[in-house]
């Protein structure tokens, strides 16, 4: 079973190409407020994660997700 840190590592690495401000990426980094992702870019990022873990991430969970860490926890729950 993949642990939280592995999810976090992948989620950070998958964001590198969209990290136009080159800010440090960690579990506290906010996808919109810090990195400045648009809604379209968020969905592109989500698709990358979905394909990597072969899961579907429901839209319902997104309002509760602000940071990479919060998303990593959600992905871990979905992939159990």
């Amino acid at each position: 079973m993949t642990d939280y840190q592995e999810y976090l590592d992948f989620l950070c690495s998958a964001l590198e190409s969209q990290n136009k401000k080159n800010i440090p990426l960690n579990e506290n980094t906010a996808l919109v407020a810090d990195i400045g992702l648009s809604s379209l870019e968020v969905m592109e990022y989500i698709e990358k994660i979905e394909d990597h873990f072969d899961i579907s991430i429901p839209l319902n969970i997104l309002p509760d997700v602000n940071t990479i860490g919060e998303l990593a926890h959600k992905v871990k729950e979905l992939n159990l």
Binding site: E47, S56, I57, L59
Partner: peptide, 21 residues
């Protein structure tokens, strides 16, 4: 309900998500 989007007019993506269900 649980809401899952599939890529616009993309049958392969829909099929993939149906399989995952």
């Amino acid at each position: 309900a649980e809401i899952i989007r599939f890529k616009h007019s993309n049958p392969e993506d829909l099929a993939k998500r149906m399989r995952r269900l």
